[in-house]
Write a protein that binds this DNA or RNA. Sequence first.
DNA 1: GTCTATAATTTGATAGAC
DNA 2: GTCTATCAAATTATAGAC
Lengths: 213, 213
Amino acid sequence: MLTIWLNYMVKKRKDDTTEGKILAAARKVFTTKGMAGARMQDIADEAGINKAMLHYYFKDKEKLFEVVFMEGAGEFFPRINKLFESDASLEEMITRFVEEYLDAMQRSPYLPWFIMNELNRDADTFLEKIWAAPNRPNPAKFLALIEKEIKKGNIKRISPLHLLLNLLSMTIFPFIAKPMITRNLHLDEMQFRYVIEQRKTEIPKFIMDSIRK
Amino acid sequence: MLTIWLNYMVKKRKDDTTEGKILAAARKVFTTKGMAGARMQDIADEAGINKAMLHYYFKDKEKLFEVVFMEGAGEFFPRINKLFESDASLEEMITRFVEEYLDAMQRSPYLPWFIMNELNRDADTFLEKIWAAPNRPNPAKFLALIEKEIKKGNIKRISPLHLLLNLLSMTIFPFIAKPMITRNLHLDEMQFRYVIEQRKTEIPKFIMDSIRK
DNA sequence: GTCTATAATTTGATAGAC
DNA sequence: GTCTATCAAATTATAGAC
C-alpha cells in the first residue's frame, strides 16, 4: 500500500514521465543552443531516449520549441509584471523586483539570453503570442507611479522611461553577458553567483541614491 | 584619364568588389541570424551572387563567420578599452564611453547581440582569440580609478565592480532588448534612435547622481 | 509507448564549363 | 572570376516491428 502510494507520487513527478524528460531535455538544449543550433538528437540523448519519441510526443521540432519558448517567456515576463502591477512604494517595488528577478534567473540563468535571442530572430511570431497572453508586460503603471512620485516631490525629476530601462538593464544584462563577465573578471561559477547575490542590494541602492532628492 | 582615375577610386571601394559584397552580406546575415541560423544561400542572395563564390573567396562557412565575428569583436571591445585606458577623470571617462559606445552601436545595432550571442554559444573558442588580440578588454585600470576616487573622498563608497556592471548594462542592454523594448513601449525606429540619443546624457547623469557625495 | 531502420529534406561544399 | 549542376553530409521526420 505504501509502495503503491510512493509509486503514484513518483510517477506524478513530471520529470519521470517520458514527456517530462523530453521537456526538461529540450529546455536545456534549446536554451543553451537556440532553435537553430539545437539538434533533435541532442535532445533525445539528453533525455535518454530516441528521436522518434520526440516526434511521437511533440509532432515536430518547431512545436517542441514553441512549448519550451512559451513556457520560458511565461516565467520571464510575469515577473516584470509583478513590478508593474503591485501597490507597493517605488523603493519597495524596485527592491522586490530586483530580488525576485535575480532569484528566478539564478535558477534559470540562460532564460534571459534565450528569450532575447529568439525575440531578436523572430520577434513578430513570438511577441504576438506573448502579447495575447493574459499577463502581458505592461509598463504603464510603473511609469505612471514614477511621474506621481516626481510631482509629489519625493524624487528628482527624471525620465520614467530611462529609469525603467536602467532598472531592467542592470538586472537582466549580467545574465546575458555572463560569459564575457566571468572571463574578463576571472570569476568562477560560485563567485558569479555571489556577485548576483550582492546585486540584490547594490542595484536598489544605486538607483535610490540617484533619484533621491 | 579622369574616367580611369574615377574608375580606380570606385573599384577601390570595398563594397564594390565581390569580396566586399560578400562580407557586407555575411555581416548582415550572420549578425541577424547567428552562425547556426545563417544560410549560405541567404548570404549569396543578399550579395547578389551565387553560393560557389562564397567558397571561392572564403573557403567555408566557418572561415567566413570567423572573419565577420572577429571584425565585429574588434569593433565591440576596443571601445570598452578606450574607457579603461584613458587618462580622463571618472566623469569624463564615463560620459565619453557612453557617447562613443552608443554612437557606434547606432551604426551597427545588432553587434552587441551578435557578439554576446556567439559568446554564449562558444565562449572558449572566441574569447581565446579575442584575448590574444593586442587590445583585449582590461577593466583593471577602470576599477583602480574608482578605488582611487573613493579614497580621495571624491565619490561615495561603492563597489567598483558593480559600478562597472551598471555602466555596461545600461549602455549595451537596450540594443540587445530592442525588439522587446520597441514593442512594449510602442516605439518606432526613429523613436528608438531618439531614446538612445537621450541616453548619452541620461546614463552619465544617472550614474553621477548616484555616486556623487 | 518505445524502438530500429530508413526515407525525405535541407544545406554546405565541389566539379567543371565558360 | 563567375556560373550551373551536382554531390555529400547532416538533420528532421516517418514507417513499421515489437
